Computed example of a mutant assay.
Amino acid sequence: MTAITVIGTGNMGQAIAGVAHKGGASVQILARDLEKAGTAAAAIGATSGVVGDAISGEIVILALPYPALADIAEKYGDQLTNKVVVDITNPVDFATFDGLVVPADSSAAAELATAVPGARVVKAFNTNFAATLVSGELGGVPTVVQIAGDDDAAKKLLADVLTAAGLSVADAGALNRTRELEAFGFLQMVLAVREQISWTGGFAVRS
């Protein structure tokens, strides 16, 4: 059984924890608020704790805003070595909502990989809205999680859980493709804010 730790109890954190549970993984949920972690964990029979507690998962999903990544990297450091660390963020400038805050030749995932060089960083979920992960479908097809990373075995470990949960996976390639995934995620958010699509919608990927 794959063990997954989800850090964060927002809409995305709870949705991803639910997908992981549905995919047969054992789930640990960590948050800064122990009560919130406990409530989210109780809903799916997971274990819970606070940020700073030991990580039990071989896959660690950072269901947090982009600015929180640096703190998590510093707090856990070497504990993330050899773990599959999944970045779901879109590093959007929320002050202007007019662009990404990372350099044009970089990405949030690339910065994370630099901060935790021993980790096997994978980008995933940033092009999904929480509602489509919960429902498992979009536009009449299974919800597709687009992923990228340099470690094929790490991507497969995550993909196997997702497909077991009934989702589809599209592998966008190496970690340097995360810039495009983050731009894609930003575009989807812009369309939702402009009410061109709903927060229960998004892009469906058909093979």
Rank of each mutant, 00 (worst) to 15 (best):
F125I: 00
L100Q: 05
S26M: 12
L162R: 09
G38F: 04
R120E: 01
A113M: 07
T132C: 05
S168H: 10
T127F: 00
P91E: 02
E111N: 05
V101L: 06
E74Q: 15
L158H: 06
A165S: 11
D105G: 10
L64Y: 01
R179Y: 04
G118C: 09
V51A: 12
A115N: 06
S48K: 13
A20H: 06
S207L: 09
L62C: 09
A204V: 01
F125C: 03
I4A: 14
A113I: 07
P65G: 02
V144C: 15
D98M: 05
Q146N: 12
E35N: 12
A130R: 00
L133Y: 08
A43M: 12
H21E: 12
V60L: 05
V92M: 06
A119F: 08
G38T: 08
L133N: 03
A113E: 14
L69F: 14
G13K: 01
L187R: 11
V50C: 08
T47G: 10
V92L: 13
G8D: 04
W199F: 15
A159V: 11
A15E: 04
R177G: 00
G8M: 04
G57Y: 13
L157Q: 15
A131Q: 14
T5Y: 00
K156E: 14
V84D: 05
D33W: 10
A192E: 09
G136S: 11
K83L: 15
T2R: 13
G202T: 09
P142M: 07
P65I: 01
V19S: 05
D105T: 12
V116L: 04
G24I: 08
T132K: 02
A154S: 13
A40C: 05
A192N: 09
A46I: 09
G10E: 04
D105Y: 10
E35Q: 12
E74K: 14
A159S: 15
A3S: 15
V6A: 08
V84G: 06
P142W: 08
T39P: 01
Y76C: 07
I59P: 02
D53C: 08
L187E: 08
A174W: 01
G139T: 13
S207P: 15
S26F: 10
A54C: 02
V84C: 03
T89R: 00
A3Q: 14
D33L: 06
P117S: 14
